[in-house]
């Protein structure tokens, strides 16, 4: 049993090479252990002091978000909350204010829950995850990271250090909408993200949809068939495709038929919101409060 506090990424990687599991906010690991989901790993390395993983930097290709950037930081970030709005929509819905101040983007992604709120927006934005270990560094397209509920393709000694998102083309943006029964401490029953690029005439130039909590991992679809169509047609078709592609379960949160219906509604709303943003309109973060579930007040 060991607990190491890493002061540099290299120290963290060395500890992980020796079998330790990384812990930052602890909002999944600790809470899960307390609820008997999985015992706390015997060997832990605390990475919460690695300031080098806490910054958001603009690159020539887009933006790089350090793995320890918190949901609150994303929600409030001037660039992320505008050009990468779908991610900010998702971060703004995670847990409670205290969860969002402690929980990190890297932790949310590596937890690999199909109900995570940042996964679908990152997937439709074609984000790549940077994994590092003492053996080196590699980038993985985010959809290839998740393999099953709670499972990733990362090796046990690999640490997620950054999330890279390509810069959106002009007249493009994203949105994430989630079905929620209450306004805090909620977990996605279903959710949908959309990335929309528009042609000059307002028709669809690109459309990708990501679905939360309706399959073992986040589902992503590139709806190339919608190119050239109007936004309203594309939104309806995205709803249909989402309902068809979803493989929801019935559980204590909702029945499969209700999930299948509502994921279509979420997908349509996500496409509509993303298209409005792509056309230059500002919709406040998160879309859920501005136009979505239960409506604003």
């Amino acid at each position: 049993m060991s607990f190491t506090i890493a002061h540099t990424v290299d120290e963290a990687l060395a500890a992980m090479a020796a079998g330790a599991r990384a812990i930052a906010g602890g909002t999944d690991l600790v809470v899960g252990a307390r609820h008997g989901k999985a015992a706390l790993p015997g060997n832990l390395v605390a990475i919460d002091r690695l300031t080098e993983l806490k910054s958001v930097t603009t690159t020539k290709d887009g933006v790089s978000i350090g793995a320890l950037v918190t949901h609150h930081d994303i929600e409030m970030h001037p660039l992320l909350s505008t050009s990468y709005a779908g991610l900010a929509d998702g971060s703004a819905l995670v847990g409670s204010p205290s969860t969002r101040h402690i929980g990190t983007l890297g932790g949310n992604i590596m937890n690999a829950s199909p109900a995570m709120d940042t996964g679908a927006p990152l997937a439709v934005m074609r984000a790549e995850i940077e994994l590092r270990s003492v053996r080196g560094s590699r980038r993985v397209p985010i959809e290839e990271l998740w393999t099953a509920p709670g499972k990733t393709s990362a090796q046990p000694d690999e640490l997620c250090v950054a999330i890279h998102i390509p810069a959106p083309a002009t007249r493009s943006n994203s949105a994430y909408v989630r079905l929620e029964y209450r306004r805090a401490m909620e977990i996605a029953v279903v959710g949908a993200a959309a990335f929309v690029a528009l042609n000059d005439d307002g028709t669809i130039a690109a459309l990708r949809v990501g679905l939360t909590a309706v399959s073992p991992t986040i589902f992503t679809g590139d709806l190339v068939g919608q190119i050239g169509r109007s936004v309203s047609d594309a939104a309806e078709n995205a709803a249909k495709v989402s309902m068809e592609q979803a493989t929801p379960i019935s559980d204590v949160r909702a029945s499969d038929s209700y999930r299948r219906h509502t994921v279509g509604v979420m997908a349509r709303r996500a496409v509509e919101a993303a298209a409005r943003r792509a056309a230059g309109e500002t919709i406040a973060i998160p879309v859920n409060r501005a136009i979505g579930i239960g409506a604003a007040s």
Partner: peptide, 26 residues
């Protein structure tokens, strides 16, 4: 409260038994 067919509670936890939060207060 939701019961299974063996009369056991299915949502005996605060995530699945949904109280209202401050954010919901009108």
């Amino acid at each position: 409260t939701k019961y299974d067919d063996q009369a056991r509670q299915r949502n005996a936890a605060l995530l699945e038994y949904k109280l209202q939060t401050c954010a919901d207060a009108p």
